[in-house]
Amino acid sequence: MRTSLLLLTLLLLPFNFLKAQAPPDPGDRLIGVWEPSHGKARVKIEKIGTKYYGKIVWLREPNDATTGAPKVDKNNPDEALRSVPLRGYRLLKDFSYTGTDEWAEGTIYDPENGSTYSCVITLKDANTLDIRGYIGVKALGRTDVWKRLQAK
């Protein structure tokens, strides 16, 4: 009986220990489902390892108007990637939390023109992101405002 109790305690202890010791990562506030300003897509941002990635999980028009087939990344400059479905496509890559509500060192891909831009993400409030894609320097860029989504 004593051995069983000891084992149970030891089995549960590490979980409780982790829960108590690991404060919530402030960078994880980026995690969630977001809607870009054009409203044509929804992007799920998740953490993989220590970095953050965002993939398309919903398209307002999921099928190609001409072919009727699910949309693919047909504008990708790499011909080999032009048959990759857009739904599930990771368009935000490699973001690291730098503190002060900012995630940087990542890129954003625009499936409309096949271009990849440097990008910095700023959390304006719990439900609003500024996504700034830029070329070389931040001044040469454009900011899009994304809104957090949740189940109705």
């Binding site: 919903w58 719990a126 809104k147 989504l149 949740q150 189940a151 109705k152």
Partner: peptide
């Protein structure tokens, strides 16, 4: 992906 069909703004 169907779980993302019925979402609304958190704000």
């Amino acid at each position: 992906y169907s779980q993302y069909d019925d979402l609304g703004f958190a704000d």
